[in-house]
Computed example of a mutant assay.
Amino acid sequence: MFKNKYLRFIIFFIVNFLALGLGVLLMNNGPKTEWYTNLNQAPWTPVNWVFGVAWSTIMFCFSFYITKLTLEFNYLDKRLITLFTVQWFLNVCWNFVFFNQHLTELGLVVIILLWLLIGYFTFNYLKKIKWYTVLIVPYLIWMTIATSLNAYIVFYN
């Protein structure tokens, strides 16, 4: 089942972009709310349109990355599927916790866990998939930036 790499990529692509869509719904227009715009934000906070471009690029690349991993391992590898699922959940959950519920400290915990998980993906599978690891690097870089933005809000508000 799902031995075709193209079908596998399409499935991961849909699942990853579903996370983005669900995250947008759960944030309840968060970046445009008075609560968020009145926060003391980090000076390196990108303009709003950058977030959409960054996340679209990240999820496109991550779909290739996770497809490659599942081709190297059994596609139903419990550990890999669990890690992917936890990553998906944390990614979606952060939007709700931070923007919808305004729980910036809990948001920081969630985003740190997500950053650590993406770091684990990056370095744990490096020897197995070698140069394909470059496909997850944008995710790791963006999570580093996003974590710093969340931390700044926690510490300066």
Rank of each mutant, 00 (worst) to 15 (best):
I66N: 06
V110C: 06
L76S: 13
V15R: 00
L117Y: 11
N29M: 08
P31D: 03
F17N: 11
L113R: 01
V50D: 02
F98N: 08
L76Y: 14
E34D: 10
I66C: 06
C93H: 02
S63E: 00
V86A: 13
L114I: 02
R79K: 15
V53T: 08
H102K: 15
G30F: 02
F99G: 06
M27S: 13
V110D: 12
L69K: 10
G107E: 01
G107L: 05
P43Q: 10
N100Y: 07
G119T: 13
P31F: 01
L26R: 07
R79H: 12
N29D: 15
I10N: 02
N40M: 08
I81S: 07
N48Y: 05
C61E: 00
L20S: 14
Y6S: 08
R8K: 11
M27E: 12
S63R: 03
N38F: 05
I66G: 03
F13P: 01
G21S: 12
N74M: 02
T57K: 02
V53W: 02
F51C: 00
W44V: 12
L103G: 08
Y75S: 04
F2T: 04
R8V: 00
V86G: 14
F2P: 00
F51D: 00
I118A: 15
T37A: 09
G23P: 08
F96S: 06
N4L: 09
F84T: 07
R79D: 12
S63K: 04
Y75F: 11
F64L: 14
G107T: 05
R79W: 11
K32Q: 15
F64D: 05
W44H: 05
W94N: 10
C61Y: 02
C93L: 15
K78I: 13
N16G: 13
F64E: 06
F51M: 01
K3A: 08
N48F: 07
L39R: 15
N91V: 03
N74H: 07
D77S: 14
Y36V: 03
F12I: 01
W49L: 15
Y75N: 04
K3G: 10
V47D: 13
A54Q: 03
C93K: 04
W94A: 11
C61T: 04
P43Y: 11
L22W: 06
